[in-house]
């Protein structure tokens, strides 16, 4: 009898404690899912926001304490960088730039040369936890139409490949990126050769960057006008050395194959010539051949590419991704 009584008590205790433990286990399991979304959710968003802001809106800063010099042109002083920013700046001696959101090509290309330790510390992508430095993972990419941009043959992306298993904090900024040089001519200011449908432009070599020529405000009088081809110093270029883009009033510049029909006065042409076509120190004569066009005939001296050269900016997206 005594034995049966004792047994009943321990079954009861067992039941009570197992209900308690089961619920406790459930609660413990529940806690992480309850808090993880909120506590971790915001912690790196400000970091991504700050990094994107400094890169897009600030020209950066360098400082040399020994000879007391400083400026925003850190791309020329890679050993004395204080802060990395990509915005272009016409006055490197003052701290502010009047052109935020317009990213400078030299600065972008110089960033790619910096090593990871330098980038992490100058972009402030780390946290100090009880005295030791914990680096964040990051990836910073310039994208145009969903694919990374390529400037002077380099893909503009630095950092690591984002992991798939972790939360990633992402900020995107719309920016204008300097990708090269362009000379934009109105149709009434270009010089022509022997006939009124041949445009001649002088290009002085050597050129280290691709030569981009744009012709706008084309006055079209004949319905069958077209652009046919480009020749350099009288010899025909192989098509792979240059490409032609056409803009109409309904589309931006899109790649076209010659001959390109010109139908509307709002049509514009953009020609991109590989810089390897202009390797030596001489003046190259570029002829653009049209059909049934009447450019106003202006005789030599021919117009110079370098006289109208300006930086070419393209709209792009700056993507900053940060993770722990």
């Amino acid at each position: 009898m005594m034995v049966t009584d004792e047994g009943q008590i321990s079954v009861d205790f067992l039941l009570g404690i197992s209900i308690f433990l089961l619920t406790f286990g459930f609660v413990i399991q529940f806690i992480p899912s309850l808090f993880i979304s909120t506590s971790a959710g915001g912690s790196l968003n400000p970091v991504a926001y700050r990094t994107a802001n400094i890169l897009a809106d600030d020209p950066g800063w360098w400082q040399n304490k020994t000879n007391a010099q400083n400026g925003t042109d850190w791309e020329m002083h890679l050993n004395d960088i204080s802060r990395i920013g990509l915005a272009t700046d016409a006055t490197p001696s003052t701290r502010q730039t009047r052109t935020p959101k317009m990213l400078n090509k030299t600065k972008i290309l110089q960033v790619l040369k910096l090593n990871k330790t330098m980038l992490t510390s100058k972009l402030g992508l780390y946290n100090k936890i009880s005295g030791s430095q914990v680096d964040y993972g990051y990836n910073i990419t310039l994208e145009k139409n969903g694919s990374p941009m390529i400037i002077n043959g380099s893909i503009i992306s630095f950092g690591e490949t984002p992991p798939t298993s972790q939360d990633i904090y992402k900020i995107t900024r719309q920016v204008l990126v300097e990708t090269g040089n362009i000379a934009s001519f109105r149709a009434d200011e270009v010089t022509t050769g022997s006939s009124s449908d041949k445009v001649i432009v002088n290009i002085s070599g050597p050129q280290s960057e691709d030569v981009i020529i744009q012709i706008i405000d084309i006055n079209i009088t004949n319905p069958n006008s077209s652009f046919d081809n480009a020749t350099l110093n009288g010899s025909l270029n192989i098509p792979s050395d240059y490409s032609v883009y056409k803009r109409t009033n309904t589309s931006d510049f899109i790649y076209s194959t010659t001959p390109i029909p010109l139908e509307n006065s709002t049509d514009a042409l953009r020609l991109i010539f590989n810089h390897t076509l202009f390797p030596i120190n001489t003046t190259y004569q570029l002829e653009l051949n049209f059909t049934r066009m009447n450019f106003i005939q202006i005789w030599p001296p021919y117009i110079e590419y370098t006289s109208k050269i300006e930086p070419l900016y393209e709209p792009a997206t700056l993507i900053v991704e940060v993770w722990k």
Partner: peptide, 28 residues
């Protein structure tokens, strides 16, 4: 919080879009 960071992103994108349209040189 996550909603708010979406708001920050949205406002930034909208401001960037207007600023870029305003500052863009003729060739851009």
């Amino acid at each position: 919080q996550s909603e708010l960071s979406m708001d920050v992103q949205l406002k930034q994108t909208a401001e960037d879009a207007l600023a870029i349209l305003d500052m863009a040189p003729g060739t851009a």
